[in-house]
Amino acid sequence: MARPIRRIAVIGAGTIGASWAAWFLSRGLEVVASDPSPDAPGLIRRMVETAWPILQQLGATADADPGRWRFEPDPVKAVEGCDAVQESAPERYEVKQPLLRAISAALPEGALILLSSSGLLVSRLSEGCTHPERVVIGHPFNPPHLIPLVEVVGGTTASPEAVQAAVAFYQAIGKYPIVLNKEVPGHLANRLQAALWREAVHMVAEGVASVADVDAAISQGPGLRWALMGPHATFHLAGGEGGYAHFMHHLMPAVTSWWESLGNPVLTPELQKALIDGVTQETGGRPIPALAADRDAALVRLLAAKTG
């Protein structure tokens, strides 16, 4: 049986881990963070300080404390006495597997190991772990302290009880978990956005439109609807009173005929340069922190509109 989660270890405290730490703190949890980088404590501190006003707007709990965290360089020591782990180490099997084996052996009975991995398979990641049945993918979207979605994957190794416990935990802290019934490389949401990005690259490579106009084709068009409902529900509405069934009957032949001409571009150095130059022109060369701050502020307004 899973333990009640009050203290959580954040193993890997880069951009994703620090963002997770800020969210956990805002939900009243105690955080123990670990990372081999000597810069990690400063990154966490800056992330929490920067994010805290936004997290308060998003409904930080009454017992939330931005100072309720400590840093422990040794990941094995960091997980001792913790009720769960959110692991966000670099996205490589050779890094994650020995780390997970070490922390799995040190965790108390019933503690969950939740993995932020954006595309690796949980059945491989948990190989050699003391309790592979308690190792579950809990993949967030960047930045985790703002985006609600968490993909939960148990694969062939995690127990149904661990998957259910992971879902319950993420729901309890205000996230929107979805469960994948089987494991696939890249999980679900990354595969969907990779498919779209492939065609976005193809459209630039074929000279159909500029980088800025390709982006605008989403952000000023279907992307606005996708913030409210996904592609299936969107096309359900596109079918009018007949719904998805009418859409299938009336529009499916046209849409599926486009599939035949979808591209499979090769990202040559020349194409990469064209894409990079295009997005630099699109953003006016503004620095990344300024762009991210504008995005985050808009995300807060969008989340408020969706829940309001």
Rank of each mutant, 00 (worst) to 15 (best):
G14Y: 02
A217L: 01
I113M: 15
S104D: 14
P38N: 11
E241Q: 14
D39T: 09
G42M: 15
V184N: 08
R301G: 01
V201C: 04
A297I: 00
G240S: 04
K182R: 14
A105K: 14
E133P: 02
G308A: 14
F71E: 08
I173P: 01
L149I: 09
P144C: 06
I103Y: 07
Q281L: 08
A290P: 03
S37L: 00
R45C: 05
L196Y: 09
R27P: 04
L125T: 00
Q86D: 12
L149M: 13
E260C: 12
R6D: 14
A238L: 09
S19H: 07
E87R: 00
A212T: 08
A158K: 00
A33D: 09
D63K: 10
Q171R: 13
W226Q: 11
E206I: 05
A162H: 00
A60S: 12
F24S: 01
F141A: 10
G67C: 08
G186Y: 10
V300W: 08
P289F: 05
A189L: 10
A166M: 10
G285K: 04
L188G: 15
R27N: 13
V266R: 10
A111K: 06
L29V: 03
G242Y: 11
P160C: 06
A293D: 15
L149A: 11
G243Y: 01
W69R: 01
E241Y: 09
H202W: 14
A18D: 04
G155M: 01
A60E: 00
P148V: 14
R46T: 11
A9R: 04
V214K: 03
V167R: 05
I218A: 15
R45G: 03
A189H: 02
V184W: 04
P231Q: 11
G81L: 08
G128F: 06
E151N: 05
E199D: 07
L149C: 11
A195F: 09
P132Q: 06
A102F: 04
C129D: 03
Q86M: 13
T234R: 02
A9P: 05
Y244M: 10
G308N: 10
P269E: 13
L275V: 14
T234I: 09
Q86P: 03
A166I: 03
A205Q: 10
V255W: 13
I137F: 01
R191P: 07
L192S: 09
V214S: 01
P38L: 11
P143R: 03
V150T: 02
P41D: 15
P231S: 12
R191G: 10
A102V: 01
I178V: 15
L125P: 02
K306C: 14
K182T: 13
S257I: 04
L25S: 00
M229R: 10
V279W: 13
A18M: 07
E282N: 10
E199G: 10
L188E: 15
W258N: 15
L291M: 10
E109M: 06
A22P: 02
L112C: 01
P73L: 04
R124H: 12
L120M: 14
R124Y: 09
E282H: 15
W52A: 12
V48M: 00
Y176I: 03
L303N: 12
L100I: 07
